[in-house]
Structures are given as structure tokens and as C-alpha cells.
Design a protein around this nucleic acid. Structure first.
Length: 551
DNA sequence: TCTGTCGTTGACTAA
DNA sequence: TTTAGTCAACGACAG
């Protein structure tokens, strides 16, 4: 290791590879990079596998660019710069290793399947080039591999089980401070005059985006903004102590939660820093507890990360052992209506279409999808509403389709959380009470009787009286005329009758579950302890249903 | 092996 | 306005 360098007076030429973890605070891999370092190259790679216009929507691009600009700004204060490189990491690194005579590579550990295989390839390449590799865990609060090990090699499938495992692991580590200028006084970052041309941060236009229709930037990316938002939220001590997620509103006009999630996703904010700041606020005070508290929210993130590590094909239905196999419909029209609504363009003027793209004919759902598209963030319960609606509740479309849309549009689109929550909401895994269905009408009314949220995001409905705002098709013709919006012409009829279709879908879920039990009886669990014992006659689906009916 | 309890956030109705 | 019961009945976990 670096011992030889110490004795010979040699110091490292090091690349710190930023991927997530776009911050200086609580960044142990960056600190490791600065140890025995004479030259530091902070690098971000625009990997086309992760960052392309099919996967990443314009708002998420804008957020990323904000993060990179902020990072470059912070690095300048340490007399360094960020190097943005385009290309596949396995092609980029060998060139950089040679060009800069690199001896050490540091990065933050990333547990996503693509990241693991990418990092394995890059590590092999590094070794071939005589480059030492150092990585540190700091994207999650805990070590996911350790959690799975403590749970006998499997991901915990319930939150309680997950918390039990955490008790054996103990408190999270304390975050470490950002490197200061003293830490980099012997470190140089060689920059040419052409730095911005060769390694600059791209603009949205560079990436081929039309920015003329871009909305206000409500949540600018970057570590400084993340820390500012954290401070701002932690100042509300009473609110922090009383925070209970289910009590927050999905349809308030300004967010009822912290909106720190995008900053956690990109690693502008360290989850450990967040955790310990909340702990400080709790000190000596009565406070809410997981799963509903702010700590609880951070633990949900860890829960899904562990699931993403321990469960194969976690982002798919097929080949995913915890996911109930459901005979979802293929219905491009329904999907388009939920997502953005191509089929309604014919009937509606372009101006109206531009201002309100989603068109299921259910204002609460359409308003949420409009907010998602415009702002890149929606409240967790709003996600529940539209996710349940797309899948088991109403449209009976595979959750993987929703997963793709969320990944594209959400600033906090996070692989493990996205996959896990879609399975939860579709009652495919983790949550199994499929007969509990959200009403696209009733849910929103609980916290917004007047429908102000709907009026904000679907202005063409703004003149409807509160009585009909959630169900405009029920309004008498005269009311529709007075509101200047005729249902079926200006705004669509609901694409489904929720009361009818949701009951039908519950029965379809019941069948999927029965088939699941029958299948697991046919091919019992893989675990050796369960393989032993008397073989039982496999039950058919029909047997299962008959048994259930008799009850 | 079986059984009881529990599960971040349902909707609806009646009191 | 808030709370409890009903609807129908799931899987994971712990004992």
C-alpha cells in the first residue's frame, strides 16, 4: 500500500471517481484519495448506460447539472476542479490511467447491480494498470452486505425484521467533515487552459434538450442547497420531533415533507449526516418513532437498498423470487393516458394539452401526474395514489411500466426505492393486503376538500365547484358550462369506473395470490431445512379456490 | 408444524 | 369532528 510511498517520498496520483456521493461532506473515499496524494483528479463520468435521454428526463438532467456545478465550485475552493468525461467507464479509465499516470482510484461503494458489475470491471482494469483501488461505504447509513449476512444471507422482507437486524448492528457511524483547504495544501490538480472545453459540465442544450418549455427550478441540485435545506428543516425542532409521514398531506400546495430525497439520491446530502442531525434535534425531547418518524424514513431507504442487494432481479416481475406473478394487461392507451395522454390530443386544443398533459379523466390522478412531469417531485402518498391506480387498483398495468416513468421523471428516482415501492403499491411484494385499494376520488378529499391542488395543476378545471372537482363528470351540464369545461370535450370522461373495476381487480389479485401459494406448494422453498420432511401433495389452483370458498 | 399477531399511511358507515 | 366497526382476508414472522 502507501507505506512504500511514505518511505520513498513518493506520493499518489489519484482519481476520485464521483458517481453518486456528489458532495464533499461525509465523503470517506474522497478523504482516502487525499491521503499521500500529490495530484488529485476529481472525475465524473457521463456513462451513457446511466445517463441518456431515454432514461433521464429534462428535470433530472437539470438537477444533475446543478450538482456537478456545485461540486466544481466547492472543488475550486480547494484549488481543484471537477473533470467531466463522457463515455463508458471501462473505456474511459484505461486512457485516463495512462494519460495522468494514475496510481490510486477511490470511489464510494454502490450496491446497484449495474454499479457492482461496472466497478468490478473497472477494478480489474485498474489492477492491470498498477492502480490501487480504495472504496468506502457512505451512500447508505449501514453496510448492506452486513445486514444480509446478519439475516442468514437473505434480505429482510419486513420493516420490523429489518429493525431487529439493525439492533444487532448498533448505531450508525458519525459523519466525517468535508476536506478543508489545509487538507489539500500539498495536493495539486493539474488543469489546462482548455479545461472547460475538454472536461467542462455540459449544458441542457449540449445534451439535446429544448429548454424553452422548462418550468421553474423548485429544487436546484447540489450539496450547498442540500445542506441549506437540511438546516432549514432542522430548525423546525417541534415539527421534526412530531413528524409522522402518514399525517403529511399528498396534495398541499407546497411540499408537506422535507424534499431532501433528491439530494440523498444523488448523494448531495449524506444520509448519515441527516440521521445524526435528526438525532441532535431529538436530544432530550419526546419524539415520533420509526416507521413514521424522520429516522423511520431514512430506515425505509435502507430497507429497500438491502432488498435491492439481496433479491435477484429486484426491478423485474419475472425471475424475482419475492414478487407475486400477476397477469397484467398490455394496454398502451391506458398507459399513455396515465403517463401523458397521447390519445386525447385529438379532442383537446394544443394549448390545453400543453398545460395539462395527463388525462385519465380522474382529476386527482391527472393533477399528480402533471405535478410530477412539471416539477419532478410528488409527495409519497401521491405516488401511492397513482401507483395503485396504474396497477392493481384500476388500470391493471405492470408496475414495471410505472417504474420506468418514475425513473425518468422523478428527481429522486432511485433504483432500489423505485423498484421496492412499486412492488409494495402493486401488492406484488412486502405489502399484501391487496383488498385495500386507494380511491382516486376519496384519498385526495381527505386533505384538500376544495380541490385547490387540482385547480393548481389542472387549471382548466379551476372553475368547478368543490362538490364536483374530484368527479367533474357528475356535474350537471349547466355546472360544466358555467365552469367553461365540458366533460367529454374539454376534459375526458374517466377512463375507468373505479367502483366497478377495482372490485374486479381485487378478484384478479386473489387469483394471482392463490396461484402463488399453489406454485410454492409445488416447488417448496429452496432452503435445506424446508426441503426435508414429508412430501405433500401439491394443491391445484382450483383446490385452493375451493378451499377458500368453503371458508 | 401450527397459530396468533402484526403490518408506515383504505374506504365507507354509523355513532 | 373524531373514533370504531365492517368489509375480506393477505404474507411474514415469532413463539
Amino acid at each position: 500500500m502507501s507505506a512504500s510511498n511514505v518511505f520513498t517520498g513518493m506520493a499518489h496520483t489519484c482519481i476520485h471517481w464521483f458517481r453518486k456521493g456528489l458532495r464533499l461532506h461525509d465523503n470517506p473515499a474522497l478523504v482516502a484519495a487525499l491521503r499521500d496524494c500529490k495530484e488529485l483528479y476529481p472525475v465524473f463520468i457521463l456513462d451513457p448506460y446511466l445517463y441518456n435521454n431515454t432514461l433521464v428526463g429534462i428535470n433530472r438532467w437539470r438537477f444533475l447539472i446543478g450538482c456537478l456545478k456545485d461540486l466544481d465550485c466547492s472543488l475550486r475552493k480547494l484549488n481543484s476542479r471537477l473533470f467531466v468525461v463522457r463515455g463508458k467507464p471501462e473505456e474511459v479509465f484505461p486512457k485516463l490511467f495512462q494519460k495522468w499516470k494514475v496510481t490510486k482510484l477511490t470511489y464510494e461503494y454502490d450496491t446497484e447491480p449495474y454499479s457492482l458489475s461496472r466497478d468490478k470491471t473497472v477494478t480489474t482494469l485498474a489492477k492491470e494498470h498498477g492502480v490501487e483501488v480504495v472504496y468506502k461505504i457512505s451512500h447508505t447509513i449501514h453496510d448492506m452486505d452486513r445486514i444480509i449476512e446478519e439475516n442468514n444471507g437473505k434480505a429482510p422482507l419486513t420493516y420490523n425484521r429489518f429493525r431487529t437486524i439493525l439492533k444487532t448492528i448498533g448505531n450508525p457511524k458519525k459523519p466525517i467533515p468535508a476536506p478543508a483547504i489545509e487538507d489539500t495544501k500539498d495536493v495539486k490538480t493539474p488543469c489546462s487552459e482548455n479545461h472547460d472545453k475538454n472536461y467542462g459540465i455540459p449544458t441542457l442544450e449540449d445534451l439535446g434538450h429544448d429548454t424553452t418549455t422548462l418550468g421553474e427550478e423548485k429544487f436546484p441540485g447540489g450539496e450547498q442547497e442540500a445542506l441549506r435545506r437540511l438546516d432549514e428543516n432542522m430548525e423546525r425542532k417541534d415539527w421534526v420531533c412530531k413528524f409522522e409521514k402518514p399525517q403529511t398531506s399528498p396534495n398541499s400546495l407546497s411540499p408537506s415533507t422535507t424534499v431532501l430525497s433528491p439530494y440523498l439520491t444523488f448523494g448531495c446530502l449524506s444520509a448519515r449526516t441527516f440521521w445524526w442531525r435528526v438525532t441532535e434535534v431529538y436530544q432530550g425531547k419526546k419524539h415520533s418513532e420509526p416507521p413514521v418518524s424522520l429516522h423511520g424514513q431514512l430506515l425505509w431507504r435502507e430497507f429497500y437498498y438491502a432488498a435491492g442487494v439481496g433479491i435477484p432481479n429486484f426491478d423485474k416481475m419475472e425471475g424475482n423470487p419475492v414478487c407475486t406473478q400477476v397477469d397484467w394487461d398490455t394496454n398502451p392507451e391506458y398507459l399513455a393516458a396515465w403517463r401523458e395522454l397521447i390519445s386525447w390530443i385529438i379532442n383537446v386544443s394544443w394549448v390545453l394539452c400543453m398545460s395539462c398533459k395527463a388525462r385519465t379523466g380522474l382529476p386527482f390522478i391527472d393533477a399528480i401526474m402533471t405535478q410530477l412531469r412539471q416539477e419532478g417531485w410528488i409527495h409519497h402518498l401521491a405516488r401511492h395514489a397513482v401507483a395503485c391506480f396504474l396497477t392493481r387498483g384500476d388500470l391493471w398495468i405492470n408496475w414495471e411500466e410505472g417504474q420506468k416513468v418514475f425513473e425518468y421523471l422523478l428527481l429522486d428516482g432511485d433504483w432500489a426505492l423505485n423498484a421496492g415501492n412499486w412492488q409494495w403499491l402493486s401488492a406484488s411484494a412486502f405489502f399484501h393486503q391487496y383488498f385495500r385499494v386507494y380511491s382516486p376520488v376519496a384519498l385526495g378529499k381527505k386533505t384538500d376538500k376544495n380541490g385547490d391542488y387540482i385547480k393548481k395543476y389542472l387549471p382548466l378545471l379551476k372553475k368547478f365547484p368543490a362538490q364536483y372537482i374530484y368527479e367533474p363528470w357528475k356535474a350537471p351540464r349547466s355546472v360544466q358550462q358555467a365552469a367553461g369545461c365540458i366533460v367529454g370535450t374539454d376534459y375526458p370522461q374517466p377512463i375507468v369506473q373505479h367502483e366497478v373495476i377495482s372490485k374486479k381487480n381485487i378478484q384478479r389479485m386473489k387469483l394471482a395470490y392463490a396461484k402463488r401459494s399453489a406454485d410454492s406448494a409445488e416447488s417448496p422453498n429452496e432452503s435445506p431445512s424446508k426441503k426435508q420432511g414429508v412430501k405433500r401433495k401439491a394443491k391445484s389452483v382450483i383446490d385452493m379456490l375451493q378451499k377458500k370458498d368453503k371458508k
